[in-house]
Amino acid sequence: MNDTKPYEPPIIQVDDFSFFYGDKQVLHNISMDFEENKVTALIGPSGCGKSTLLRNINRMNDLVPGVHHQGDIRIDGTSLYDPKVEVISLRKRVGMVFQKYNPFPKSIYENIVFPLRVAGRNSRSELDETVERSLKGAALWDEVKDKLHQSAYGLSGGQQQRLCIARAIANRPQILLMDEPCAALDPIATLKIEDLMEDLKKDLTIVIVTHNMQQATRISDKTAFLYLGNLIEYGDTAQIFTNPKEEQTEAYITGRFS
């Protein structure tokens, strides 16, 4: 299961991975490596399997009835499907931000400290420190520092999504998965989140699913194009968007089909 190559394994290694919902295969033998401290964008038309791939990286698909997989995904060289893997611990390592912002019906403060609380860390100073760090990290600190104990539902949509990002990075995960994080936001809020990702990738590896070509070019270092469950092309963002090797990629990025 473990490659004993002389070099460091890539942080996320997808190895001949196939995924099935019941009889329906949604991912076909995908193999790709994600690089550390980079933003990798997954693009492709609806139903191409990019969200499924993303959700497999922290095993969020586990509880869907009737799923099974072939192949492997490894983080830092350890298989996610190793019988020794504790899923809860995996998810602490791999954070996730969803398409629709989903703060808890609690205060801003409690939202952010949630991952610490479930880990049993309740020291007041640590919590305060985390809140400030995460909110600053999510570029939300200045906007909410005076209302930390008010309900998170009082924030605007963009602020709520940044709060979710702050919450996701509160426990300092290694990897942050973002499933169309800007789909429900207006352009200004989108811009703020894109700026934020630029800062975040200093500490994190980000995998983002997006439908927005411009966004992918703006924020990602690498881009993967998926189509009908197959990985069509994977490479540097500049190369994919300026000089795609595959015809399908070109057709997609130029908007000839979607």
Binding site: I88, R91, G95, M96, P103, F104, P115, V118, R167, N171
Partner: peptide
């Protein structure tokens, strides 16, 4: 899903 993803 959010809380699951946060390791609860």
């Amino acid at each position: 899903a959010a809380s699951e993803a946060l390791g609860a």
